[in-house]
Design a binder for these strands. Structure first.
Length: 153
DNA sequence: GCCAACGTTGGC
DNA sequence: GCCAACGTTGGC
């Protein structure tokens, strides 16, 4: 089992939005970065646990726990001309953008802010903290995952 | 709103 | 294949 961190802007789609979906599940559409796509297509497996991270907001940080709940399949928005994520170069025979479904797993008692994450030397190797990191999907080690869950409990 | 850091695009 | 120009991300 692998562990991940996925960023989302809470103004667009928050952890509580995920929780209030009918099946508490959401296709992770709109990713248009190849590295992030490759993680979803090649490495994320059903059952993998996810730190759901809020970015570009007042207090950036981990808002809750989610999990991967589907195998990879094409992102429907790439074929939708009305979508902001439409990609003219993608075809159904040769889709360019692949996603997985993300499901609510459980709440954390407290959000774990980016400030808090920076305070702990155990978490300093996290890719989230490395300079210039902009990827919206990042691998997290088991130790880092457990440490953050503990901070949020 | 600023800006550093990066990814992508396209001309050559 | 190089690289300048441009666009995006995301913390501050």
């Amino acid at each position: 089992m692998n562990y991940w961190l996925m960023k989302s802007e809470p103004d667009v789609f928050s952890f509580s939005d995920l929780k209030s979906r009918p099946k508490k599940t959401e296709p992770w559409n709109g990713v248009r970065n190849y590295q992030a796509r490759n993680f979803m297509r090649d490495e994320m497996k059903v059952g993998d646990l996810i730190l759901f991270y809020h970015s570009s907001c007042e207090i950036p940080g981990v808002a809750g726990i989610a999990r991967v709940s589907s195998t990879p399949y094409p992102d429907a928005t790439q074929f939708d001309k009305k979508s902001e994520y439409y990609d003219a170069k993608a075809t159904s025979e040769n889709p360019r953008w692949i996603l997985i479904d993300v499901s609510y797993e459980r709440d954390l008692k407290n959000h774990v802010s980016l400030d808090e994450i920076r305070k702990h030397p155990e978490l300093s190797p996290m890719r989230l903290l490395q300079k210039g990191n902009r990827l919206s999907i990042l691998p997290v080690s088991k130790e880092e995952f457990n440490f953050i869950v503990k901070l949020g409990t």
